[in-house]
């Protein structure tokens, strides 16, 4: 039966290798430097404050690592939503 299994199977260790690599690299790449996280924080604040007033002293942001995925989670306390802000058009700068 071994030869039949070989004939029909396409699930060798290669697919395991690829899946494991993809997962481990999500984790590796999410391990970003404090400088990058600071930059990200500044950029996010500048976008958000276009639309709402926030309490920037109480912002929490971090990577939430689960078994098969990584989420970027930000908790940003809102003080007041601004009225009638048009979203940026394509190519428009902040």
């Amino acid at each position: 039966m071994g030869f039949l299994k070989r004939f029909f199977s396409n699930g060798g260790s290669k697919s395991v290798a690829k899946e494991r690599l993809q997962i481990v690299l999500i984790h590796d790449r999410a391990d970003i430097s404090p400088e990058m996280l600071d930059g990200l924080r500044r950029d996010i604040i500048s976008v958000i404050t276009r639309y709402m007033e926030i309490d920037s002293s109480r912002i929490e942001m971090d990577f939430d690592r689960a078994d098969r995925s990584v989420a970027f989670v930000a908790n940003i306390p809102v003080i007041r939503i601004k009225r009638g802000v048009a979203p940026l058009r394509d190519g428009e700068q902040l």
Binding site: N10, S13, K14, L21
Partner: peptide, 16 residues
């Protein structure tokens, strides 16, 4: 080994 599905092929590595 690639043919037998026991090694990453070039496209797998490039994908990643």
């Amino acid at each position: 080994m690639v043919r037998e599905g026991e090694m990453l092929d070039v496209n797998d590595v490039l994908d990643i």
